[in-house]
Design a protein around this nucleic acid. Structure first.
Length: 104
DNA sequence: AGGTTGACTCACC
DNA sequence: TGGTGAGCCAACC
C-alpha cells in the first residue's frame, strides 16, 4: 500500500526532528522527495497514531503557525525552549530545524 | 461522480 | 514574517 509507505516515510522524518526545534511540512515533504506533497504530510500527521511517539508538535507550517484546535502543541514547544512570537506563532527564524546546516 | 475542505506552499505586497 | 489569492492533491460528504 503506497500511501501507507508514504506515511511511514513521513513519520520517519518527523521522528528525527531534534529537541527544541521545529520543521515545516514543506521541509518534511522536501526531505521525503515530494516538495509538492506538503498537504499530504499534514494528512499523514493527522493520521499518525499517538503510540507512534511522533514529535508532531514540532511540525508547523511555513509561517510558523501551530495546529488549529491543538493548544497543547504550544505548551510542548514552550517546554522544549522553542521561541514564540507575540501572535502565538513559533519564531521560525530561531527554532526552525536547519537539517542541512546542522553538520558544521 | 461532483463539490467542499484541509495539520500546506508560493507569489505578491 | 504574514494576510490574501491561487494552485495543489487526497479525503470526505
Amino acid at each position: 500500500m503506497k500511501k501507507q509507505e508514504f506515511n511511514n516515510l513521513i513519520y520517519h522524518i518527523v521522528s528525527m526532528i531534534p529537541y527544541g526545534k521545529v520543521a515545516t511540512y514543506g521541509q518534511i515533504a522536501f526531505m521525503a522527495g515530494m516538495p509538492q506533497c506538503a498537504r499530504r504530510v499534514g494528512q499523514a500527521m493527522h493520521n499518525a497514531p499517538e503510540y507512534f511517539e511522533l514529535p508532531c508538535h514540532r511540525v508547523v507550517n511555513s509561517k510558523g503557525r501551530l495546529v488549529p484546535g491543538w493548544q497543547e502543541q504550544r505548551g510542548y514547544l514552550l517546554n522544549e525552549g522553542v521561541h514564540f512570537k507575540e501572535n502565538g506563532n513559533v519564531d521560525l527564524k530561531q527554532s526552525i530545524w536547519r537539517w542541512d546546516t546542522e553538520s558544521t
